[in-house]
Design a binder for these strands. Structure first.
Lengths: 189, 189
DNA sequence: ACCATATGAGACACCAATGTCTCATGCTGG
DNA sequence: CCAGCATGAGACATTGGTGTCTCATATGGT
C-alpha cells in the first residue's frame, strides 16, 4: 500500500512564492522564503535540500516557463516581428524570475544546467536569424546580440514595472517597440 | 607637524581593484577584495569601515564616473543621436561597475545616495527629451523608459563582452544601433 | 478508533564572513 | 640615527545563515 501525499505542500506553490520573493529581494533567507510560502523552515528544507537546491529548482522552473512561452508564441508562424511581439507577451509573467536568475547565474558560471538555457537561446536566436534571412531584420546586429538585448530589455522592463515607474500594460509595447523599431522617429509611419 | 600619508595606500587604486573584482564576482569576500588590491584585509578595513562602506564608496565612484562621462559626452552639442553615441562610448569603461551597482542597489532600496543617481537619470532623460522635441526621436517611448533601456542594454553589452561572446570593439556600435535604430531593416538606408 | 505520515516549532552545532584587536615590521621624514 | 606611523599577519569573538535533529501535533486513510 502506497501512501501518497497526505497533507502535502504544493511544491509548485512554494517555488512560485520563492520566485516572487527572490525577485524583489534576491538575498532573502531560507526563513523568509519559508514564511512567504506559508510553511515552516523545516518543511521547506524537507522539500529542497538547501539553498542551492532551491535555486536550481527555480532555474528549472524558469527554463520550463521559457520553454512554454516559446511554444505558445509559435515563433515559426507569421512574420518574425509578430513572433517577437508574441514572445515578449508570453514571457512577461516570467520576466521577474528571469531577471533574478540572470543575476544569480553568474555564480554558477560554467555549470551544468546551461544546456537548458542554450536550447532557449538557440530558439530565440533562430527567430532573429529567420527575420534576417527574410530581409525583415538588419544583418549588422548578430542574432546572439539581439537575444542578449532582449533579455536585458526584459529585465529593465521588469524592474521598471516593479519599481512603479512603468505600467504593466506598457511592458510588451515598450520592449517590442524599442527592440524592433528603436528610438529614432521614422517618416514612413 | 602633520604627517601626511607615508606609505599610503592609494584608496582610488583599491576602489578600482574592488570594482574590477566585484564586477566579475559580486559575492567576493573582503579578503578577496583585499588580495585583489594587493593589500591586507586589515588595511582594507582601515580605509573602509566595512563592506557597506566599500559598496557605498564604489557607488560614489560609479556616480562620479557617470558624471564625468556625461560631461565628456557634451550632451547638448549636435544631434541627440550623436550625443547618445558619444555617451555610450564615454560610459563604456564604467559599464561593468554600473552593472554591478545596478544589481546591488536593490538592497539599499529607498536609501539616500539615490539623489546622485537621480541627477544622472535626469540628464540622460533630458537628452532623450531633447531628441523628441527636435523631432528626432519618437514620442511614444518615454524618456524614462529610454534611459532605463540604455542601462539595460549597457549591462547586457558588458555581460556579452565579459563572457567573451562579443568583442569590446563592437560594444558601442551594438548598443547605439539597437537603441536608436532597432532591429528592423530600413529600406531608406 | 487506530495508525501512518507530514507538518510546525524549536533546539543545536556548524560554518563563513565580518569586525576588532594586538604585535612585529617595515618605511619615511626629520 | 631616531622617532613616528602605516602596514601585514594573525588571533579572537561575534554574527547571521545554514543544515540537522527531535518531539509534539494535526490530518487523512483504513
Amino acid at each position: 500500500m502506497v501512501y501518497v501525499c497526505l497533507m502535502a505542500v504544493d511544491p509548485d506553490h512554494v517555488l512560485r512564492s520563492a520566485a516572487a520573493l527572490l525577485t524583489r529581494k534576491s538575498t532573502a533567507t531560507m526563513d523568509e522564503v519559508a514564511k512567504a510560502a506559508g510553511i515552516s523552515r523545516a518543511t521547506l528544507h524537507r522539500h529542497f535540500a538547501g539553498r542551492d537546491a532551491l535555486v536550481r529548482a527555480l532555474e528549472s522552473l524558469g527554463i520550463e516557463e521559457c520553454r512554454a512561452a516559446l511554444d505558445t508564441a509559435r515563433l515559426d508562424e507569421g512574420t518574425a516581428s509578430e513572433a517577437v511581439r508574441r514572445l515578449v507577451g508570453a514571457m512577461e509573467p516570467a520576466a521577474g524570475l528571469l531577471a533574478f536568475l540572470y543575476t544569480e547565474n553568474q555564480l554558477f558560471e560554467g555549470e551544468e544546467q546551461n544546456a537548458g538555457w542554450s536550447l532557449i537561446d538557440d530558439r530565440i536566436s533562430a527567430l532573429f536569424r529567420r527575420g534576417q534571412l527574410a530581409g525583415e531584420f538588419r544583418i549588422d546586429l548578430t542574432p546572439a546580440w539581439l537575444t542578449e538585448a532582449l533579455y536585458g530589455l526584459m529585465a529593465s522592463g521588469a524592474w521598471m514595472v516593479h519599481s512603479g515607474k512603468g505600467a504593466p500594460k506598457d511592458f510588451q509595447h515598450m520592449i517590442v517597440e524599442l527592440l524592433l523599431g528603436g528610438a529614432l522617429r521614422r517618416e514612413e509611419s
